[in-house]
Design a protein around this nucleic acid. Structure first.
Length: 190
DNA sequence: AGAGCGATGGCCT
DNA sequence: GGCCATCGCTCTA
């Protein structure tokens, strides 16, 4: 079993963490079954960035973002989907990395049930999809990424990193804060 | 392959 | 009351 990422990994600029998370592995247990997925697509959100939930300051929803890096920030979007973020930076900085897509590694049968599809490429190829596949919801908000219930461990990356603008936002749409692995089949969008 | 759109609920003004 | 860091279905081609 490879090493879990430590808090100092997360307590850096979200853009650096977003790139370094590519190739790392998310671990989760659902009904005694181990689920693992390799991170292949991320987006960085910074406090001085108008697309960031923390842009307007601390609110009940965004309090996780202002804590020290190394915990989760999970929120509900469009009334029906959750998005999973790794909080980054020092305490008091409102920033995080959105995990947008995973390459399924282990527990594919469970993912198929949770996603109600047999198409592996459709299991985790989007932020809402991967939360369904890993059964991540509001209970997983504000949790330590080293102790769980969701953890992230070191991985390997041989692919080149592509950098583009972020998906699904209007403000800050020109900022190049989206990162993904070149040629990977499990990203949400080219 | 791609555009359009409805579902659905919490947060914030 | 308006706005979403989305998804899957339908329609057109």
């Amino acid at each position: 079993m490879s090493q879990l990422l430590k808090s100092d990994f997360y307590q850096r600029d979200a853009r650096e963490v977003a790139k370094d998370l590519l190739g790392c592995v998310i671990n989760r247990e659902v009904d005694g079954i181990r689920l693992r997925g390799r991170i292949v697509e991320t987006e960085a959100y910074l406090q001085d960035d108008p697309a960031c939930h923390a842009y307007k300051g601390l609110t009940p929803r965004t309090k996780a973002m202002f804590k020290a890096g190394g915990i989760s920030y999970v929120y509900l979007i469009y009334g029906m989907y959750y998005c999973f973020n790794a909080v980054t930076g020092k305490e008091g900085n409102g920033e995080a990395v959105l995990i947008r897509a995973l390459e399924p590694l282990e527990g594919l049968d469970t993912m198929a049930k949770l996603r109600k599809t047999d198409k592996v490429k459709n299991f985790c190829s989007g932020p809402g999809k991967l939360c369904l596949a890993f059964n991540i919801g509001k209970n997983e908000n504000l949790k330590c990424l080293e102790s769980g219930p969701v953890t992230i461990s070191e991985g390997s990356r041989e692919e080149e990193i592509y950098t583009t603008t972020r998906i699904g936002i209007s403000l800050g749409a020109d900022l190049p804060y989206r990162y993904y692995l070149k040629g990977n089949q499990f990203i949400s969008k080219k």
